[in-house]
Nucleic acid binder design. Structure first.
Lengths: 136, 136
DNA sequence: TTAGATGCAAAGCGTTTGCACCCCC
DNA sequence: GGGGGTGCAAACGCTTTGCATCTAA
């Protein structure tokens, strides 16, 4: 069953067949799909679903805080449903594979006041880069 | 004088008036211009310079390793000439402004072996997000 | 002399938007 | 029934590219 879907229902999110399919496609661990990949997968279950709806819905899930937007490079953004637990990304420079890794400390707290330049720092995003086993 | 320009000359980079102007515009600390901003500034010194040349040249500087590409969300990429010294970025979620901050430790070393999934981790990119003084 | 850099314009890609229609609550 | 969601297509912002022309070495 879809945890994401369940959470959205609990939050009173208006449900439609399109939104259900998108939530189901996104649900799971180590899922980092592009909007287009979401659309392709969603189309397999619901052929009439439009790209616009996929984009609108993903944008809404992001502002609801249920999905995280990950820009791996200059390419298409990826969408990560694992928003309920803080984590970081390990990206393979060879094939682009993304793995979730879990934090060992609080990076935000590690930025000393004199390095903040008056900014109100709310989060730190850490991306580790290297080669995965198959690309080594 | 322009350190970037000097380094490029030493590397035998073919010099033209366009490339000189671009290198001069980029040179300095805490410089994080978009391609368009580079083009606007370059045009002040060399009115005929084209956008294509700015994009081509920036791309080349990036592959030469003299400039770092910083993608801040869905906005235009920014170009950071401070590639010779390791540093991190503090990005304003309001206006997209970027500041350089300097590392306090070795983030790569902080990723424990059991979180590496067989990857050979070579670098860690840390991006702090928050609101700058004018956007607070 | 000539490989390579430039300018122009058009195309490309990912994403957003305006609007008429449709449907969940 | 009404407010919101959906689909379509066109527009959008940023970036890349094809090609003829120029220029640094």
């Amino acid at each position: 069953m879809s945890d994401l879907l369940e959470r959205l229902r609990e939050r009173g999110w208006r449900m439609t067949s399109q939104r259900r399919v998108i939530a189901e496609v996104l649900d799971g661990d180590h899922v980092h799909l592009t909007a287009d990949e979401v659309h392709v997968r969603a189309t397999r279950r619901l052929p009439e679903i439009s790209r616009a709806t996929v984009y609108n819905t993903l944008g809404e899930l992001v502002s609801l805080g249920e999905v995280i937007e990950v820009s791996t490079d200059g390419r298409a953004k990826r969408y990560d449903p694992n928003a309920h637990r803080p984590h970081q990304h390990l990206v393979c420079s060879g094939c682009g594979t993304v793995r979730d890794v879990h934090p060992t400390g609080n990076p935000v707290a590690d930025l000393p006041a004199e390095e903040r330049f008056g900014f109100t720092v709310s989060e730190a995003e850490i991306t580790y880069r290297g080669l995965c086993p198959s690309c080594t």
